[in-house]
Simulated scan of single mutants.
Amino acid sequence: MHAPLPHTARRFAPTALMLGNFVTGCSVIGPAGMLAELSSGLDVSIRDAGLLITYGAAVLCFGSPVMAWLTSRIERRTLLISTLAVFAITNAASAFAPNYLSLLGLRLLMLAVGALYTPQAAGTAGLIVPLEKRGSTIAYIFLGWSLAAAVGLPLITFIASRYGFRAAYGGIAAVSCLSFLLLAWRLPGGLLGEPVDLKTWGLVGRNRMILLLLLITTLQMSGQFVVFTFMGPLLAKLTGAGPDAVGLVFALYGVFGFVGIAIATRIVDSWGPYKTSLLFTSLLFSGVSGWAFSAGHYPLMAASVAIWGLGFASTNSMQQVRLVIAAPALASASVSLNTSVLYVGQAVGSAIGGVLYAHDQLHAAGFVAMAFVALALTTVLCTRRIPAAKAST
């Protein structure tokens, strides 16, 4: 593995990586902010529009480990900027998609390639910063996902509700181009990670800590996406909220997600990743529980989403930090698998949410989400007793 390059060569490189995650986040969760517009513009049901997220997540869950294996020997700068170029091209093409099937095909192509960005960006952090800053830097890079929810998703909702979903896709494409240029400018070349081979996957499969952490990610994301995928339509049906009121809730979710990950970034090096993860998973559970019990009351649901937001991105970033620290030599594989099971959770949650929504089980969705997150919190508690020495073998 190459040693970190001089400080002047790394200036703003983490920020460039973080903005790439912003593009990734907008591309992955964007349909959730414009389900109604996709439904009416493509003449499909809300549930079918939601399947853009479900099918996309299925591609991502398989694509992340496969792409990590196929691309592990490619220089990181080349790999990451190529991924952003694909995001730019496919989002631009989506703005002109003539029908639902063509849009779905473009999305699956985009995410098959895009599956590698988040884990490779996290792994690249270990090549450009000192060991003692690795945890906070990974958390900072994951801040891009918080920004995608805090800024990107409300903007997508705003633009789509006024100008249609095609304008929203065009906006994502424009931001993808800007992110591509920034990353090409600031990320140094010559960065190579540890190659991923079959032996690596075997070591990952025998590491108890890694397996438990992957289970936590799956449960957390499954629970959230039972509700999150259909959050806009659920708010509209349960409270009569219009597009602006829905956009406000998305903004609360993202802004508080930004606050949560900013706090996590500041405290993780002193608190340690386990305590930080426990704190924010507890907040996640509190917020999802609040949504379940307050369904039908817009102010209480919005407040619950704010609490939920504190935990959504920070828990994911802590998962990545814990995986890197648990077994540094396996980080490229374990972080890609974490991204994979994250999308497994999205696929499972959005599929369950779609069934519940189609059968008008609007209140039940919150309680199903709550059960998943409760299991995740219980599993976090189980990881406390695994000695560090065993976690790194």
Rank of each mutant, 00 (worst) to 15 (best):
V341Y: 03
V368T: 01
T24D: 15
S286C: 15
Y169F: 15
M231C: 14
L17T: 02
V59W: 11
G242V: 08
G353F: 03
A92F: 15
P188W: 11
G20W: 13
L248C: 03
L300M: 13
L375R: 07
S277C: 13
L42C: 12
V23T: 13
S136I: 12
G164A: 06
L219D: 03
S45G: 04
L342M: 14
P243N: 05
G170F: 05
F142R: 06
R76P: 10
G366I: 11
R76C: 07
P188V: 06
L211T: 06
T378P: 07
L51Y: 13
L212E: 08
D269A: 03
S136F: 09
Q319W: 09
A149N: 14
L279Q: 07
A358Y: 14
Y163S: 15
L181I: 13
I74Y: 05
G105T: 05
P65L: 02
G232D: 08
F250T: 01
G354F: 00
I172S: 04
A292T: 04
N316A: 14
R77L: 11
Q120F: 14
P328H: 07
A32D: 09
S286Y: 08
L182R: 14
L111F: 01
S332Q: 14
I325E: 15
P195G: 04
I29S: 14
G257V: 02
A358G: 15
L35S: 00
Q319R: 11
N338G: 09
F22E: 05
R47Y: 08
A306L: 11
S314W: 10
P387R: 06
M110C: 13
A121L: 06
G50Q: 00
I216M: 10
G254P: 05
G345S: 05
A150N: 04
A251C: 11
Q361S: 11
V341Q: 01
L5Y: 14
Y253P: 03
S45F: 02
A36T: 10
T315I: 08
A36K: 02
L106E: 01
T281C: 13
G152S: 07
V268C: 06
I307Y: 12
L279T: 09
L284H: 06
F230P: 00
P299C: 07
I261F: 08
F225Y: 13
I89L: 10
G254L: 09
V227C: 12
H2C: 15
A32M: 12
P328G: 10
A376H: 04
A374G: 12
P4I: 06
G25K: 02
P98L: 08
S179G: 14
S289Y: 11
A68G: 10
C61P: 04
M370F: 04
S39M: 09
V288C: 08
N207F: 00
S392E: 14
G123H: 02
N21H: 07
A303M: 12
L19S: 03
A292E: 06
G33A: 13
A358D: 15
K390W: 15
A326E: 07
F228S: 04
A303F: 09
A95R: 05
G20K: 09
L211G: 07
A173K: 02
L356G: 03
G345D: 01
L153C: 01
A264E: 10
G193V: 10
I263M: 04
